[in-house]
Amino acid sequence: MLYDRTAAKLFGVALRILGNRHDTEDAVQEIYIKVWQRAASFEATGASPMSWLIAIARNHAIDRLRSRRVAHEDVSGNETVADDAPTPEAHAIAAGERERIDHCLGELPEDRSSAVQAAYLDGASYQELAERFSVPLNTMRTWLRRSLIQLRECLES
């Protein structure tokens, strides 16, 4: 069944972003309910099924994180900025996608590459990124936007 084949990955996504198991358990249930409800929209997208599921999981976890009233007491407790360890479960297709994004991230200055990954993987907001990299908020915005344009050019080439 869908759940058995995908739950460990989606649980891992939500746990990394939310940082605690209690929230993650709630979030993962809500994620699967959304998946059921949105199954009809899947055909319209060109994404792979796993990417589509992870996108739903990330969006849900980030929405939940952003709506927490007490905002992130301890940012430093959650600071796995980049994960260099190769992941054994990576499939061939995913490995190819990973190679491409790694190549393009490698063309960015190292701190900007780290900022992009911290946002995507840990759900860091602009505010948190600015604190983490000790730059003003507006500087972080400019950095990241410019990095995204550069990334897009590399990924689309």
């Binding site: 990955k9 995913a94 994004i101 993987l121």
Partner: peptide, 25 residues
């Protein structure tokens, strides 16, 4: 953009959810 960045998804480790989660769902 979801497709562009999907390559990063391999960095999310799999974490086995507790068994009661499936029952609750």
């Amino acid at each position: 953009w979801e497709n562009h960045l999907a390559g990063l998804n391999t960095a999310f480790d799999e974490v086995e959810p507790p068994a009661h989660l499936k029952d609750a769902l």
